[in-house]
Simulated assay, not measured.
Amino acid sequence: MLGILKHLDDGLSVIERQLLGWSIVIMAVNTVANVIMRLGFSSSIFFSEELNQFLIILVTFVGISEAARMGRHIRMSAFTDMLGPKSGKIMMIIITTGTACLLFLLAWYSVDYVMSLIKSNRLTPALRIPYYFTVLWVPFGLTVTGIQFLFAAATNIFKPGTHLSYRVEDTFEAEDHHL
């Protein structure tokens, strides 16, 4: 089972890293070009802000999946750190499963929002593209992040140790926590 998860995770990781990398490059080029246009020609690129807003949404909602994959999400571990290894593992299974369910619920609501935008026929002001194109990344990002948390739950069920994600085991190293 974990072998199948690894292949799915590897495929998602390639897609996400490409999307994130290219989005950041395009955002940087767009921003620099807009600054040059403003300073050199006293005129902005008319779609620059709109494009960057779209890319920020993409980076945010695709980036949360990558953060979850690498165990870099925010977590409150004071309580689980006080538990023993077995109880901590059970809590991690409950937390990752609950988080996945919440993310899938949010993805469901975001699909409903996208559908309402499709029906509204709203267009973006500068590029005049359907507005729903700019938020399609929200349900995608929430769904793949939910999948990451399901991977983490499955890893905690089938592998020894406590895992923050499919790839990252939770470790407590006393030397990293000096007071």
Rank of each mutant, 00 (worst) to 15 (best):
V59L: 14
N52D: 13
T60L: 11
P125R: 05
S77M: 12
C101P: 02
S43R: 15
R72G: 14
M76H: 14
V62K: 11
I95D: 02
F61G: 01
R72T: 14
L117H: 02
F104R: 06
L117Y: 03
F61P: 07
Y109A: 09
E49A: 08
N121D: 05
R69H: 02
L106P: 05
K86A: 14
G84S: 06
L127V: 04
L83N: 06
D81Q: 12
L39I: 05
T99M: 00
K86H: 12
L55C: 11
F47D: 00
N34K: 07
E50R: 04
L127F: 01
F41A: 03
A126I: 03
L58K: 07
T124R: 05
D81W: 15
Y109D: 08
M76P: 09
Q53R: 01
L58R: 01
S87T: 04
P85E: 09
G63E: 11
L106F: 15
N34W: 12
S48T: 12
F47W: 14
S48D: 10
V111T: 07
M92S: 15
I36W: 12
W108K: 12
Y113E: 08
K89F: 02
Y113H: 10
M76T: 13
K86P: 07
I36Q: 05
M70E: 06
R38M: 14
E50V: 11
V59D: 11
A67P: 09
T124F: 01
S120M: 04
V62P: 08
L55I: 07
S87D: 12
M91P: 07
I45N: 05
D112Q: 08
D81T: 04
L123D: 09
G63M: 08
L123V: 00
